[in-house]
């Protein structure tokens, strides 16, 4: 495993279901609770990433090392967030397109999968139905994306 500084690792979770937020929160083991940032809509996710409105202060909205993104969100859905993040000039100007995005969704339709990969998603995962599987899934995410995987922001 790479020697990534886990203390500085920030995860942005974009999820509208409080229960699913809770499932991920419980299974993620980060040194500090403040390392997991949660927003419940795509619009808020974009405000967070572009530091608009309530998220203007970088202390409150540090640039994440990983984004966990649901697709079915209330106002702006995950696919739209992904598209803006990976493809827009605005996002590229801020280097936001380099942040790994992992979709975690209940949707397994071709349309959602194709759209996600068309917009350069880094990984596409299905929400499990069992508590045990949640535990496994979140552990795997942590091990892979915060352990083995090197992204541009990591200094080893």
């Amino acid at each position: 495993m790479n020697n990534i500084n886990i203390e500085e690792f920030i995860v942005l979770l974009v999820e509208d279901e409080a229960d699913h937020q809770e499932m991920i929160r419980r299974n993620l083991s980060l040194p500090n609770d403040q390392q997991l940032k949660i927003v419940d809509d795509g619009e808020d996710a974009l405000s967070y990433l572009f530091r608009e409105g309530d998220y203007a202060n970088p202390e409150i909205s540090p640039t994440p090392s990983l984004i966990l993104l649901d697709i079915n969100l209330i106002r702006v859905n995950g696919t739209e967030v992904l598209k803006i993040l990976k493809c827009s000039d605005e996002a590229k100007a801020l280097d936001l397109h380099k942040i790994p995005v992992v979709i975690v969704t209940t949707s397994s339709t071709d349309k959602d999968k194709i759209e996600a990969y068309d917009n350069y998603v880094n990984s596409y995962l299905l929400k499990p139905g069992e508590a045990e599987d949640w535990k496994k899934l979140v552990k795997e995410i942590q091990q892979y994306w915060m352990g083995f995987n090197l992204s541009t922001s990591h200094n080893v």
Binding site: H20, S107, E130, A131
Partner: peptide, 24 residues
């Protein structure tokens, strides 16, 4: 059908996941 299946699945996922938590 897309929204029906998604919206019915969401609380079901919650129920099943937290039933496991209850056992623990």
């Amino acid at each position: 059908t897309y929204s029906v299946s998604h919206d019915l699945k969401t609380p079901l996922t919650t129920i099943r996941s937290f039933l496991g938590e209850l056992q623990k």
